[in-house]
Amino acid sequence: MLDHPSPLIDIRGVCRSFPKGSGEQLLVLEQVDLTIHSGEIVGLLGRSGSGKSTLLRIIAGLVTPSSGSATCRGETIVGPPNGVAMVFQSFALFPWLTVLQNVELGLEALGVDSTERRKRALAAIDLIGLDGFESAFPKELSGGMRQRVGFARALVVHPDLLLMDEPFSALDVLTAETLRTDLIDLWIEGRLPIKSVLMVTHNIEEAVLMCDRILVFSSNPGRVATEIKVEIPHPRNRLDPYFRQLVDNIYARMTQRTEPKAPSIEGIPGTGIGMTLHHVSSNVLSGLIETLAAPP
């Protein structure tokens, strides 16, 4: 066991479809494999609608796969697994609870007694840079501060795996950048009480900046198109030529068009958008029009 520790998360051949209004099934995830080990930051990168959030929710135990297996530490995921905490794109803070109460929420659910709870919550608040805001309500905070509460709330339960669902996309550019670098700093200093991170993003630079491994998703249905290892040491410099090259590379892959389909052989010729037209000169075409317009 010690030589080959079972991976934290193991996803094998997972498919997920949702019923459409018309009664058909819409396939959003097709045959996805993913393994997450201890000590890495994994990014799921793709356009919106490529099923990456669904995959994250399958791991979080909020959605069950239609087929395939999803396990956490060797156990099938049924409901939210222990040791997995989530940060939401919309923050998902409870507006009627103060910052401290929001952070304590996860501990209360675990039945931690109140002194210990208070201690750990204050430690998490301190760590994430929210000192002095303990008794503020979320609506009194700026977006960046709110997401910090979201992080503190997830970190306080000391999860093995931190799930992040586009955590920076609701923030303005500068705030997001500060929060990102703060988080990475804490991570490389080893001060975060977590073992691994899985983040969903549609921002290529963000993925390259933070992740050790990036899974690029293709859309309709969502599947893993490529897996890219990022072997630049932290802290990473966005202006580093290798960094830029990697970003351009991924951009090219994501925007790459699917190969044009071969002209359809069956069916009536002249139908379908994929049909290739023969080269015809313009005077031949105008001749055809004149012929058609002439009296029979």
Binding site: L62, G79, P80, V84, A85, S90, G106
Partner: peptide
Amino acid sequence: PKDLEEATQSFHL
């Protein structure tokens, strides 16, 4: 709201 519902589930309330 859906996100709060997910948060309560995710934090094992």
